[in-house]
């Protein structure tokens, strides 16, 4: 019958019209920004740098300026300058740190390749998406002070992933300390251990060689034996 299809279609639209007032499955509009979206845990947008503590972000950055992410970043939006000196990281090991770490979020495409290639779990994906700015460089080219966020924040946005990372890092630290302990024991057993040990102690970062049997520091515990260098002045 001609017109049957039309009537059938009208029935469908009528059902949907009525349903959009009563049926939650058909009531799909969200009133952003009054109602903020509920982001899934996996949601990613722009990277940030993980620091161990909130009160000294520059002193406890996990990043050791290895520049792997800079090389791998497909749109080349990361810029890193290595530090000239070393300073202890959160575990007390002397490390090079990024003197400059900048991400151009106007170029970044949030692909998270940097996160995947980072061997130090130092860069992770943020969930910040409302970052519109009127100033191309001041607002969108983020420096390391703007990028650093504490591990606690990481736990807040990606709890499952962050717990896994903490567990892995703690295990790595335990293994490293075990190795250091065995090495120290072997050295103690060796006839002439004095010279290299003294040289190692003289190195600025090796002030805290892991003593045998010491407990691993908790992943989020602040460990900062030397004062951090003065942070770069914040951007205008």
């Amino acid at each position: 019958m001609l017109g049957k299809g039309l009537l059938q279609g009208l029935a469908v639209t009528a059902k949907n019209l009525v349903g959009s007032y009563h049926d939650p499955a058909r009531y799909v509009t969200q009133e952003y920004p009054e109602v903020q979206p509920k982001l899934p845990e996996a949601y990613r947008n722009f990277p940030f740098l993980v620091s161990e503590t909130a009160d000294d972000p520059m002193g406890t950055l996990r990043c050791v300026a290895c520049q792997i992410c800079e090389k791998e970043c497909p749109p080349q939006c990361i810029y890193i300058e290595k530090s000239k000196d070393k300073k202890p990281d959160a575990t007390g090991k002397a490390q090079i740190y990024p003197a400059v770490f900048a991400i151009d979020t106007a170029v970044c495409m949030s692909c998270q390749i940097c996160v995947e290639v980072c061997p130090f779990d130092a860069i992770k994906m943020d969930q910040e998406f409302a970052i519109a700015a009127t100033d191309r460089f001041g607002g969108l080219l983020l420096n390391r002070e703007q990028l650093a966020k504490p591990n606690a924040y990481y736990h807040q946005i990606h709890p499952t992933e962050a717990a896994e990372v903490d567990e892995r890092l703690a295990a790595e630290r335990r293994a490293a300390e075990e190795k250091a302990r065995l090495a120290a024991a072997a050295k103690a057993a060796a006839p002439k251990p004095a010279v290299p040990a003294a040289a190692a102690a003289a190195a600025p970062g090796a002030a805290r060689p892991a003593p045998a049997g010491s407990t691993a520091p908790a992943a989020s515990a602040p460990v900062d034996p030397v004062p951090p260098p003065a942070p770069r002045p914040p951007s205008p």
Partner: peptide, 9 residues
């Protein structure tokens, strides 16, 4: 200037 943040206008 690399990495350096531009002064705001």
């Amino acid at each position: 200037a690399p990495g350096a943040v531009q002064p705001s206008p």
